[in-house]
Amino acid sequence: MNTATSLSLGGLALSLVIAYANLWPWWKSGHDPKKLIPFGEGLALGSVSTICAGGLLGVLAGCSAGAGNTVGDKTLSGVTGVQGGAAFGRGDLGHLTPEGAVVVLLMTVGVVLAWRAAGKNDKKKIAGGVFVGTTLSLTAGVAGLLGFLPDAINMIGQQGRATLEGAGIL
Rank of each mutant, 00 (worst) to 15 (best):
L16D: 10
L16N: 04
W24N: 14
P25Y: 13
W27G: 06
K28N: 11
S29M: 09
S29F: 03
D32W: 00
D32Q: 05
P38S: 07
F39Y: 08
F39V: 11
G40M: 06
G40N: 04
L43N: 01
L43A: 06
G46R: 05
S47H: 09
V48Q: 10
V48G: 12
V48A: 14
I51G: 05
I51K: 11
A53T: 15
A53R: 15
G54R: 07
V59N: 00
L60Y: 14
A61W: 00
A61D: 06
G62M: 02
G62D: 05
C63V: 15
C63A: 15
C63H: 15
A67I: 15
T70D: 08
G72E: 02
D73V: 05
K74A: 09
K74F: 06
L76S: 06
S77G: 04
G78C: 04
T80Q: 11
G81W: 03
G81S: 14
V82F: 12
V82S: 00
Q83M: 08
Q83D: 05
G85I: 12
L93E: 13
L93P: 12
G94S: 06
G94A: 00
L96N: 07
L96F: 01
E99C: 13
E99I: 06
G100Q: 12
A101L: 14
V104G: 14
V104Y: 01
L105I: 13
M107N: 12
T108H: 01
T108D: 05
V112Q: 00
A114K: 03
R116M: 11
A118R: 01
G119C: 01
K123C: 06
I126D: 12
I126H: 11
A127T: 07
